[in-house]
Design a protein around this nucleic acid. Structure first.
Length: 235
DNA sequence: CGCCAGGGCCTCA
DNA sequence: TGAGGCCATGGC
């Protein structure tokens, strides 16, 4: 079970449509569920405010549970500060205190301000005109934005096909028999075997996260795992 | 109490 | 380039 397309089919059948990136600000709104997923309508994000919410979330969730990220996002929203211009001009200390629940709050406050400056200076509309590769290079040149954060922004905020590789993706692929190691190597597995389809990439990554949370955990729960019969690492 | 969570930077070989 | 230390809160 090493074929990315077959893995996707198994995940899709097991967990159904996901509808990422979750928008906390849209919970229980029309088209969204209680977690902020838009499982029926895949043409998101629709506004620059939603795109920037994804950008912020991508930074806040670095090595951090989404649960804690949501607390930080709620603090920003309640202060009406979930906004690129406001974050860009905010004092680092004040921002840090608001995003405290997300952890690494000093680092992340600085990163958010730096990222805000980039999007203010360049502008979403202009950045969207860039080719995916060029956009990726630009994002990676920003301090605090590594490969996963860049790809998350590209895939979910810019709606361009760049496969997101996270710890879950590495863990799942590793257990299914892949020995590729570096970020680029793992990403290449997907880029070389799948059509560069935005919705496919978005759903695939979301499904990886769901699968890692339900079964392929640090301590694996292989009992009802859909891959269990064909997984080399099954317990 | 320890472990883990949707990483990335810096330093040092 | 790759391993190791560092950043930090909150749920279980």
């Amino acid at each position: 079970m090493k074929d990315p397309l077959k893995i996707y089919e198994v995940l899709q059948k097991e967990y159904g449509p996901q509808g990422w990136w979750p928008l906390s600000s849209c919970k229980k709104k029309k088209g969204f569920d209680e977690r902020g997923y838009h499982r029926r309508e895949f043409s998101y994000p629709k506004t620059d405010a939603q795109r920037f919410e994804i950008i912020i979330g991508a930074v806040l969730t670095q090595n951090t549970s989404w649960r804690n990220v949501e607390k930080a996002m709620l603090n920003l929203e309640e202060s009406a500060l979930l906004d690129i211009e406001k974050i860009r001009k905010m004092k680092k200390g004040k921002l840090a205190s608001l995003i405290r629940p997300a952890g690494y709050f000093n680092q992340k406050a600085e990163r958010l301000i730096i990222v805000s400056k980039l999007f203010h200076d360049k502008g979403f509309a202009e950045l969207r005109k860039q080719k995916t590769g060029e956009l990726r290079k630009l994002l990676l040149s920003v301090k605090g934005v590594g490969p996963e954060t860049a790809d998350s922004m590209i895939l979910y905020a810019f709606s361009k096909p760049s496969f997101v590789v996270d710890t879950y993706t590495r863990r799942i692929l590793g257990r299914l028999g892949h020995d590729e190691n570096s970020y680029e190597e793992v990403q290449q597995i997907f880029h070389s075997s799948l059509d560069p389809d935005v919705e496919l990439f978005q759903e695939y990554h979301a499904l990886m996260v769901e699968h890692a949370k339900q079964h392929c955990k640090t301590r694996p729960d292989c009992e009802k795992c859909p891959f269990s019969p064909k997984c080399p690492k099954r317990l």
